[in-house]
Every structure is written in C-alpha cells, then in structure tokens.
Design a binder for these strands. Structure first.
Lengths: 116, 116
DNA sequence: CTTGCCCCTGACGCGCGGGTCAAGATCTAG
DNA sequence: CTAGATCTTGACCCGCGCGTCAGGGGCAAG
C-alpha cells in the first residue's frame, strides 16, 4: 500500500509518516521504481504503537532512543532506554505537572471565591 | 525609575515590560526627553499582578481583554471579561487538562506494571 | 490524451511568552 | 572626558509535532 492508505489505516496523515521516517522512528520503507513509498501491515502496526506512545506524552526524541524495540512492544510493555526507563521519567514529569496544575487551579479557585 | 530597575522590582526583565506594553497590558509609560521609559511604584504593582495572572495560566490575550481593570484587581479579585469570566473558563480548561493528564498517567503506569 | 487525485522533496508556519542579537543613543561614576 | 552600563527599536529564535504551501512527476479511468 502507498503512503496515503497506510496513513489512513494508522489513523494519521502522510505528512506524519514521512516525519516519523525522517526522525528515525520508522525504517526507510521500500520504494516503487518511481520512488513512491510502499508500506505493509507490519508498518501500520508500528505507526499505531508510535502514535499511542506519543499520546502518552513521550517525545519523538524519546522514541528514537528505543526505535529498535518499537516492534516488540506491540500491546503490552513500555519503552526502556539503554540505562534507564524513559517511561518512568515521563511518569515523574506527568505527576509533577499534575501537581503543579492542581495547585494553580486551587489558587485560581480561591481567588474567585474572594470576589463573591 | 527606568525600565531595568522597574523590571527587577517586579521580578522580571526589561524585555518582558516592553512586550507587555506592546500587547496592551501596560499603558505607554511617560518618557524622558530622550525617549527613555519611566515607571513608578504603581506600574511595578501592575506588572506584579500581570505576572501572577499569567502564572495562573491566563494568556496575554485574556489579560488584554481586561487591561482596564488590572489595577483594581490588586490583591483579591479575578478578571472578568465583558460578558463572561475569563478566569472561570481557565478554571474549566485547567480541570479538563488535569483529568486528561491523570488518565494518561494512569494508563502509562498500567503499562509499566504489565512489564514486571 | 486528458483529467484529476496521489505522491515526491524542501522549506516555511504555528502558538506563546518572551530570549537574544544588532547597532546605535544615553546615562552615570570616576 | 571617557569608559562602561543601560537604554532605544527592530528582527529573528526557541520547542514540538506536525500543517501547509510550492513546484514537479506518477497513475488509473474515461
């Protein structure tokens, strides 16, 4: 399948696929003799995994660090970088951000109460 | 006082003060005959209020909408736009964002558990 | 053959709150 | 009087995950 269909099958756009390839998240796909990219089901699955991990807040940079393991991840695990857990660090920054936003929300709410 | 001192007194930089002025959050200050901006304590207070509200997640655009009331805000209230509460809307998006991040965190945590 | 959609690469745009550099004028301490 | 800090305006830069042209070629149908 060509890039448009592959992108649609993975729930994204051709532009995103080229972008992932350029950033090293997708291996350079095979090409037709005229230079058009050709993908298979396997690639589409990989893109799905990428999108899922991005939606969890990991960055493209994070994923490039474990690009070689992206296929094995499939349904269950989380990405681990050579020495440490990328996902673990993301979990920490997530918690920190939640705490910060909660504090901000509370102080804003308090301000609003004062005006009543 | 000139811009450098005013900025320091408000806990920010000259660049930020010019930026707020350009975006309509600060009134054009008086100038010396050579064109240098001159601020007083009143202005510094206003900048403090601006910074506080920005830290609460309101945007420069939000504040421009109630620029005329920024001085009266001082210590207690929250900004209200002509028809509706800017702060109230920010409170909603804050809550939504907190919920979203919490969901993301939980699903990431769940993934990590599966790998053990 | 032509129409019309798809694909290619490369480059710029976005939002947002300023940071940073440039080139010059001005202020102030010694 | 001079050096050095501070001021002026204007313009470009940042991150980040793509969107959106621009200018060109491919591909199946009528």
């Amino acid at each position: 399948m060509r890039i448009g269909d592959a992108a649609a099958a993975a729930g994204t756009t051709p532009r995103a696929l080229r972008f992932y390839e350029q950033r090293g998240l997708l291996p350079p796909p095979t090409r037709t003799h005229t230079g058009q990219r050709v993908y298979d089901v396997h690639d589409v699955k990989r893109v799905r995994v990428i999108r899922e991990l991005l939606a969890l807040g990991l960055t493209v940079e994070d994923l490039r660090g474990c690009a070689d393991r992206l296929d094995q991840i499939g349904t269950t695990p989380c990405p681990r970088s050579p020495r440490d857990g990328v996902a673990a660090r993301r979990l920490e920054t997530l918690s920190a951000e939640i705490d910060r936003l909660t504090a901000v929300r509370d102080s804003l709410a308090q301000r609003m109460e004062l005006t009543r």
